[in-house]
């Protein structure tokens, strides 16, 4: 980074530290904070989408669809999410490749599972093994996002189906009395009104999601936990910057990062709740109306 960093062994004190903290590895570490934020920003809407579909399916009139929705919403209740994280990405990776294999190589005669090998034809590989490294990394990250979206989508489905039930019955009956069909009532009355009831649950879910991001490390994504462990471990003189075991400091740094992130989220969500309560037939909305008078 700096010009005087070319030979770190001659440095000491602050200039050593300045060079150390700006070497290639540390830049990758700083970039991984971006990875975590990206995961949060992509996963949150995706999980909400999965949750909406799940909650809607759970109220469906068609039995198989309803069962699917109910099993999906129930699945996070009984099983720790870390098990899904260890299982879902491998299962999905092999599933996708198998599907592509069926489509792209119909004349392949050898079995897909040869002993321990899971072998699909080269054209069905995901990503193609001759694609550049960033494609592989993006694909892994995509699998991680999908795993997060599926698991936290189930949480969101729980929250949303509760919110759908919380919309006052009288409003639905009024809509029916106006001659709206079930579908119209759902889209025009239930959906616009459910958000205020869902907000406490969704705020919580956002907090849960923030605190679940270190699990990215278990999915093989080079996230902040990976780099903190890699950088903090003691280094012999084969490295340009030898140092003893500093993992405690790196993890303290991560702790501060997460505490700041939750604090900022709390403040923003509290503001959002106040805005959304405006004009709603809830206690908070009523309090705002009285204060304004």
């Amino acid at each position: 980074m700096f010009a005087h960093c070319t030979d770190p062994s001659t440095l000491s004190g602050l200039s050593w530290l300045a060079c150390y903290l700006t070497n290639g590895k540390h830049l990758a570490f700083y970039a991984s904070f971006g990875t975590v934020m990206l995961l949060l920003l992509v996963t949150a809407p995706a999980a909400l989408g999965f949750g909406f579909v799940g909650a809607t399916a759970a109220r469906s009139r068609i039995p198989p669809l309803r069962w699917f929705g109910q099993i999906y919403t129930a699945m996070v209740r009984g099983v720790p999410e870390i098990i899904f994280f260890l299982f879902v990405p491998i299962a999905m990776d092999q599933g996708f490749e198998w599907l592509r294999h069926q489509v792209k190589c119909p004349d392949w005669t050898e079995p897909v599972r040869q002993g321990n090998d899971f072998l699909v034809c080269a054209a069905a590989k995901l990503p193609l093994s001759n694609s550049p490294q960033w494609v592989h990394e993006a694909y892994n990250f995509g699998l991680a996002v999908l795993a997060f979206a599926i698991v936290y989508g189930a949480f969101a489905a729980n929250v949303l189906s509760g919110a759908m039930k919380a919309v006052p019955k009288a409003q639905l009956e009024t809509a029916h009395a106006y001659g709206m069909s079930d579908r119209q009532t759902f889209w025009r009355v239930t959906v616009p009104q459910m958000w205020i009831y869902a907000l406490p649950g969704l705020s919580n879910l956002w907090m849960i999601l923030i605190k679940a991001t270190p699990l990215l490390f278990l999915l093989g994504v080079e996230d902040i936990v990976y780099w903190a462990r890699e950088l903090g471990g003691s280094k012999t003189s084969i490295y340009a910057y030898p140092h003893p075991d500093w993992r405690l400091y790196y993890f303290l740094g991560l702790l501060v990062f997460y505490l700041l992130l939750t604090r900022v989220s709390e403040v923003v969500l509290a503001r959002l709740t106040r805005r959304l309560s405006h004009g709603q037939a809830t206690m908070a909305g009523e309090a705002q109306r009285k204060a304004a008078v």
Binding site: A212, P214, L248, L254, L255, Y258, L259
Partner: peptide, 22 residues
């Protein structure tokens, strides 16, 4: 309450272990 609710359990485990071995 803020310290333990505001940070991931995963990080708390890591940190606790690193602190205990010291």
């Amino acid at each position: 309450i803020f310290l333990f609710r505001g940070s991931p359990l995963f990080i708390q485990f890591f940190l606790a272990y690193e602190a205990f071995v010291l």
